[in-house]
Amino acid sequence: MFKTLLLTVDVNDLKGSERPAEVAKTMAERDDAELHIMNVVPDYGMSIVGSFFSADHNKAILQEAKVALETWAGERFAGLPKVRLHVDQGTIYDLVLKEAESVSADAIIVGAHKSQLKDYLIGPNAARISRHAKQSVFVVR
């Protein structure tokens, strides 16, 4: 059914990524699909905030995220032959949508964080991804 899947995870909340990971693994195994796993390190929001950090800070943060994602994915997806990892920095929903297009994903799997009054049903990134994606989006609680 799906040839290419994109799973989004947050390496700072890997416990919250367990259920979406289970769903993605099941889908990948069932369809013999290529599975792309993506973590996006949020940017600083305002350029003035970024000016307080050293030039190497971004590189170090991205490297830490990459190592964390490799370790986590290696434990959960060891049996899957078609797993690709991606780490980027910027606006989460925007980069997820771009990556989905880049890898020609048929489906995106995202986790839904616990609802807060302002988010109501799903978090703001999952909501934006769901609204704007050209692919099917599975929001996993």
Rank of each mutant, 00 (worst) to 15 (best):
G79F: 07
A65P: 05
D32I: 01
Q63M: 09
Y44K: 05
V23K: 08
E75I: 05
E75Q: 15
K25Q: 07
L80F: 08
H36K: 00
F138R: 13
S102T: 15
D88W: 11
R30Q: 08
A112N: 09
Q135A: 11
L7F: 01
D32F: 01
N58I: 14
V83I: 05
I109S: 05
I48G: 08
E70L: 04
L121Y: 13
Y120G: 00
M1K: 06
L69G: 04
I108M: 05
K59F: 12
Q63R: 12
A112C: 10
H113K: 15
V41L: 02
I122Q: 01
E34S: 00
A107T: 09
R84C: 06
Q135Y: 03
V11A: 03
D10M: 09
D10H: 13
I108G: 02
V96Y: 14
P42I: 09
K134L: 07
V49C: 02
M27S: 00
A24R: 03
M1W: 02
Q116C: 05
D56A: 10
S54G: 07
G79D: 14
L35Y: 02
T91Q: 14
T26M: 09
A105M: 10
N39K: 02
A112I: 06
E64M: 10
Y120F: 12
K114T: 13
S102M: 14
F138I: 14
M1D: 04
A55Q: 12
D88Y: 07
G79M: 08
L35S: 00
A133D: 04
G123V: 05
K3G: 06
T8D: 00
V96R: 13
S17I: 09
K3Y: 01
T4V: 04
E18A: 14
D94H: 15
I48K: 06
A78D: 12
V40K: 04
Y93H: 15
A65W: 09
M46Q: 05
D106K: 02
L85N: 07
A100V: 08
